[in-house]
C-alpha cells in the first residue's frame, strides 16, 4: 500500500458516495446514466468474486463489500426508487457494443484461462469503458449538473492515481500488472477531455457544465 493507491481508493469511494447522495437527496437521477451504473455494478461483481476464494486483508475485504453494496444501492435508486426521473431516452448508448468486445478480449488476453481469472480480466476491461454511456449522455444533452461533474472528476482521478501507484510499485517492488496498467491508461484517456472541461468551466463557477 502506498499513498497513491490509498488516495486512489479514497477518491473512488468519494465518487461513489457523491453520486449516491446526489440521487438520494434530490430524489432524482436526472442526468445520470443508469447504463454506466449497471456496468459498474457488473464490474464489481465480476472482479470481487475472490471475496469467496482469497483473503488479502481486512481493508481489502471491507472496501470490496462497500463498493458492491453502494453500486447495487445506486442501481436500485435509478431503476426502482426514483425511476420516474430516469431519462432513458438520453441514456441511449448501446452497451452491447462494449460488452461483446470486452467479453471476447477477456477470453483472448488473460493471465490464466480459469473462470475467476477470465471474469477478473473482463471486469478490468469493462471498467475502462464503463463510463462511456455517461459521457455519451452528457454529450447528447449538452450539459451536466456540477455535482455530476464532481462525481466524474473523482472517478477519473481515482484511476489516474492508480497510474502513479503502478509506477511506484514498478520501481519499489518490481510489480507490473500489464492488463490493469494498459486498461488503466485507456480508462484515464477517456477522462482527459472531461478533465479539461471540468477545470475550464465547472471550477470557474458556471454552476453547470455546458458543452460548446
Amino acid at each position: 500500500m502506498n499513498i497513491f493507491r490509498l488516495s486512489g481508493d479514497v477518491c473512488h469511494l468519494v465518487a461513489i458516495i457523491i453520486l449516491f447522495l446526489k440521487i438520494w437527496r434530490s430524489k432524482s437521477c436526472a442526468g445520470i446514466s443508469g447504463k454506466s451504473q449497471l456496468l459498474f455494478a457488473l464490474v464489481f461483481t465480476t472482479r470481487y468474486l475472490d471475496l469467496f476464494t482469497a483473503f488479502i486483508s481486512i481493508y481489502n475485504t471491507v472496501m470490496k463489500v462497500v463498493f458492491l453494496v453502494l453500486a447495487y444501492a445506486t442501481v436500485s435508486l435509478i431503476y426502482f426508487r426514483f425511476r420516474k426521473s430516469y431519462d432513458s431516452e438520453s441514456d441511449s448508448f448501446r452497451v452491447e457494443f462494449l460488452l461483446v468486445p470486452v467479453a471476447g478480449l477477456s477470453f483472448l488476453e488473460n493471465y490464466s484461462f480459469t473462470p475467476l481469472e477470465i471474469l477478473w480480466t473482463f471486469s478490468i476491461y469493462l471498467e475502462s469503458v464503463a463510463i462511456l454511456p455517461q459521457l455519451f449522455m452528457i454529450t447528447k444533452t449538452g450539459e451536466a449538473e456540477s455535482i455530476t461533474t464532481h462525481y466524474l472528476f473523482f472517478l477519473g482521478l481515482y484511476r489516474t492515481l492508480y497510474l502513479a501507484n503502478w509506477v511506484w510499485r514498478y520501481h519499489e517492488e518490481g510489480f507490473f500488472d500489464q492488463i490493469a496498467v494498459v486498461s488503466g491508461v485507456v480508462q484515464t484517456i477517456f477522462y482527459c477531455d472531461f478533465f479539461y472541461l471540468y477545470f475550464t468551466r465547472v471550477l470557474r463557477g458556471s454552476g453547470k457544465m455546458t458543452l460548446p
Binding site: R47, T114, L116
Partner: peptide
C-alpha cells in the same frame, strides 16, 4: 482455488 494469480488491488 482455481487461480494462482493474486489481485491485491481494488
Amino acid at each position: 482455488d482455481d487461480s494462482d494469480v493474486d489481485h491485491d488491488e481494488l
